[in-house]
Design a protein around this nucleic acid. Structure first.
Lengths: 194, 194
DNA sequence: ATTTTTAGGTTAACAATGTTAACTTTACGG
DNA sequence: CCGTAAAGTTAACATTGTTAACCTAAAAAT
């Protein structure tokens, strides 16, 4: 049974498929086991518990997002366009990968309490990416780049959250909303301090 | 047994206590029943299912929030101060009532799918409140108040979400972050469009 | 070559969950 | 006093995450 790919990766694959196809609540140890073709207990050989399995999926998502952001923030264009592109990439990721985004950033804290905090260093890396661009554009003026990046992150995260939770007005096209969010984000580039 | 307050309100009360004391996942029909002193099935006489019970708690939270915002947006002060106060009130509500905020705005869509959309009219009412203040300050300039209010909502909601999920840098004081968020929110009042 | 250990996997079970069918009790109108 | 409807309970079902005990096959040790 160890012939065709190790069981661990097959478990992860089917968990991801189930997650993307039927949503988070449909992901149960028994369903994954059935899809993989093993027993539920076998999963516990490779993962301490369901949380650990979900965490592995979070890792996958973080990898994906990091790739998207790295591509968008490649330093081959003007900083302002790069800023805009990176914001858009983050928003796009959330909208196009709702399940990934959900388990990465929207899961109940109580369910994710056991998630090791140091794994979120990758998230911090993304924050630094935004801070770098802000620093580049707003050089000189006295401001805290990481603080501003966090506020920017709040805006983007909130926009994705509301969109995914379908709390936005149905009469408001998503693209219009996204455009407005990015446009507002760009106001962070202006060094106005009245 | 129908002497001391109807069972329905006692169920709600204990559900709220449990929610605030032990968090969402600790709220189970059996625990509520035990706390109230009835059987789990009795709850189903007054609530169709667990979701319906949670929805009733959401109603409570909406009431609370609406009260806070109404107080903060009372038209007895200057519009800009009112705007700042209303933003702060929303942020404070989320931070001071994490469990309420969680079930109101952060619950998994799949778990809340059955929540009747029209109940969120109260949330829309809050949005209109922000839109009104924006309209008042930025009168004249061509802009969509509801769209801007939604972007503002995204910022506030994202800030609360990240704070509640403890995703913010531990070295960053919450008050500093909140201040920065409000300060940035105020940039929406400036009619600059380059 | 034979025994022992160990890693990988299964069977069966436990406790907790939301929910429901069937039964009992209580109250009230005729 | 009887019947009916509401209020509440008992006992169960199906599903969940998780674990203890067992099995099995391969590798290591004697």
């Amino acid at each position: 049974m160890t012939a065709n790919g190790d069981l661990r990766s097959r478990i992860l694959e089917q968990a991801r498929v189930l997650l993307l196809k039927e949503g988070y609540s449909a992901v149960s140890m028994r369903k994954i086991a059935k899809a993989v073709g093993c027993t539920p207990t076998s999963i516990y050989i490779y993962f301490d518990n369901k949380d650990a399995l979900i965490h592995a999926l979070i890792e996958e998502g973080m990898e994906l997002l990091a790739g998207d952001l790295a591509k968008a923030s490649a330093p081959d264009s003007e900083p302002r366009a790069r800023f805009r592109g990176t914001c858009l990439a983050f928003l796009e990721f959330g909208i196009q990968n709702p399940e990934y985004y959900q388990i990465m950033f929207l899961l109940h804290p109580e369910k994710m309490e056991r998630y090791p905090t140091d794994k979120y260093r990758r998230a911090r890396r993304n924050l630094e990416l935004f801070a770098d661009i802000l620093r580049e554009v707003r050089s000189g003026s006295s401001f805290d780049p990481m603080l501003s990046a966090t506020v920017l992150w709040s805006l983007l995260h909130g926009a994705i959250s509301l969109h995914l939770a379908q709390r936005l007005d149905v009469g408001m096209p998503a693209s219009t909303f996204i455009d407005q969010v990015v446009e507002h984000a760009e106001s962070m580039l202006l060094p106005e301090s009245p």
